[in-house]
Amino acid sequence: MTPKEAMLLPDDGSQYERVDGIYLVTPLPTLLHQVAAAELSYVLRRNCPPEYWVIQAPMDYRPTSTRSLQPDVLVASRNDPGPDALRLPLLLAVEILSPATRSKDLVLKRSLYEEAGVASYWIFDPDAEILTVLELADGRYVERVVVKGDDAFDAQLPFPVRVVPSELLRRTSHPRG
Rank of each mutant, 00 (worst) to 15 (best):
L40V: 08
S41H: 03
L44P: 02
R45Q: 11
R46N: 07
C48P: 00
P50T: 14
W53K: 05
I55G: 00
A57W: 13
Y61S: 01
Y61R: 00
P63N: 09
T64G: 10
S65K: 11
T66H: 06
T66D: 07
R67C: 02
S68P: 00
S68T: 02
L69Q: 03
Q70W: 00
P71T: 01
D72G: 03
L74Q: 06
A76N: 03
A76K: 02
A76T: 00
S77W: 01
R78N: 02
D80I: 04
P81Q: 08
P81S: 14
P81I: 05
G82E: 14
G82C: 06
P83M: 05
D84P: 00
A85D: 07
L86S: 08
L88A: 11
A93H: 04
V94H: 06
E95T: 07
L97V: 13
P99L: 09
T101I: 09
T101Y: 09
S103R: 14
D105F: 10
L106A: 12
L106V: 10
V107R: 12
L108F: 07
S111H: 14
Y113F: 15
E115Y: 04
A116S: 15
G117R: 05
S120D: 07
P126R: 13
P126I: 08
P126Q: 13
D127C: 01
A128V: 13
E129F: 00
I130F: 01
I130L: 12
